[in-house]
């Protein structure tokens, strides 16, 4: 069975990814839409929002091993709904897709899982906090204290994460605008994880520690039809501050940018369109495509002018719907490390 074609169709039909989707800029067929006045409520909002079309739990971690080498880890669970709401058993309209990756300077391991809601194979709940597909789990008593595990055919990891900072609402109190036309999502992050655990590689296990970043986002139509893809970054700066930023590339060549400066004390300062500048400085041929794997990122309002270099330019997510996602090293005015995601290339 051609599951790939199926899922491709499905994902094209669902406006999660910007690439090539068309004709869905209109009504959301009964789905809830994000509204600016919504106040995030915890722990309820850690759980799923089945009335919204799409949602994700997106965790990245920059790690250093006992062997002195740098590593990156990604753990993502996407939820997509065929129809709003939830139902029992196979009749559930909720579909789940998990992505796990482990990046070393030389290699990039990827695994993917698909599941239907309703029968227990995959799901999410707010309290006690648990998000899972198959044996992959992100769970803890609470979001601030979680265990993370995932496996592929030739890799796996078991990590413990604990947050030493607050949750950060993105945009205006968690209402993140994605276009000049007003498309938006609900979006908050936990960028303050300390991470420790074990990576399982073909050549053996290695203990690691480092920093982690969780993004939570849900929406029903986050992008404009004219938006072709995005470049998204999450940076842990050595001085203790964090930076989240993204630019949405539009078909006329212009971009829509947004960013949040998060101080070491947990205070967040959002920046609207145009404040953040992202410029490719190095390109590489990856998976038969031409991708910018080095970026210059400027945020004049904070005196930031840094260069991002991929730890491993081959951090290609060869999943049903492929994209680039991997750890980066940050140099320049504010050294540090972080994660870069690029879609639509």
């Amino acid at each position: 069975m051609n599951v790939k074609a199926l899922i491709l169709w499905l994902l094209l039909a669902a406006p999660l990814w910007a690439q090539g989707f068309a004709g869905l800029g209109g009504g959301a067929e009964g789905f809830a839409t994000p509204s600016p006045g919504t106040v995030l409520e915890f722990p309820a909002d850690h759980g799923p929002h089945p009335d919204f079309r799409i949602e994700w739990w997106y965790l990245t971690a920059n790690l250093r091993g006992a062997d002195g080498r740098d590593y990156g880890v990604q753990w993502t669970l996407f939820r997509t709904a065929l129809a709003p709401g939830e139902a029992e058993g196979w009749q559930s309209p909720q579909l789940w897709m998990g992505h796990a990756a482990l990046t070393t300077p030389e290699r990039h391991f990827v695994a993917e899982r698909l599941a239907r809601g309703g029968v227990g194979q995959a799901g999410a709940q707010a309290a006690p906090f648990e998000v899972w597909v198959d044996e992959w789990r992100m769970a803890g008593p609470d979001v601030s204290e979680i265990a993370l595990t995932a496996n592929g055919a030739d890799f796996g990891y078991d990590l413990n994460l604990s947050a030493d900072g607050p949750l950060i609402p993105q945009g205006a109190g968690g209402y993140s605008v994605k276009s000049a036309g007003g498309q938006a999502s609900h979006y908050y992050s936990q960028p303050f994880y300390r991470v420790a655990g074990t990576l399982h590689l073909p050549e053996g296990s290695v203990s690691v520690s480092g920093q982690g970043w969780l993004d939570r986002e849900w929406s029903s139509q986050p992008l404009e039809a004219t938006q072709e893809g995005w470049d998204w970054i999450s940076l842990h700066l050595d001085e203790g501050a964090k930076l989240m930023g993204f630019q949405l590339r539009q078909s006329d060549g212009t971009t829509y940018t947004s960013g949040t400066w998060i101080g070491a004390d947990g205070r967040a300062e959002p920046f609207g369109d145009g404040a953040l500048r992202m410029t490719p400085v190095e390109r590489a041929a990856v998976a038969g495509r031409d991708l910018p794997v080095g970026w210059r990122v400027e945020l004049p309002g904070r005196g930031l002018d840094v260069t991002l270099r991929a730890l491993n330019p081959e951090s290609w997510m060869d999943t049903l719907f492929p994209y680039w996602e991997g750890p980066v090293r940050v140099g320049g005015s504010h050294p540090g490390r972080g994660y870069l995601e690029m879609t639509g290339y």
Binding site: N2, V3, L6, W9, L10, L82, A83, W90, L95, A115
Partner: peptide, 25 residues
């Protein structure tokens, strides 16, 4: 279950046509 079935476990045309929501719902 088309989501968990490994590739090649059902005839090509059955689900290759792609109306997954219609198939599941």
């Amino acid at each position: 279950d088309p989501l968990s079935a490994p590739a090649g476990s059902a005839p090509q045309t059955v689900t290759g046509r792609g109306d997954l929501p219609g198939f599941l719902t």
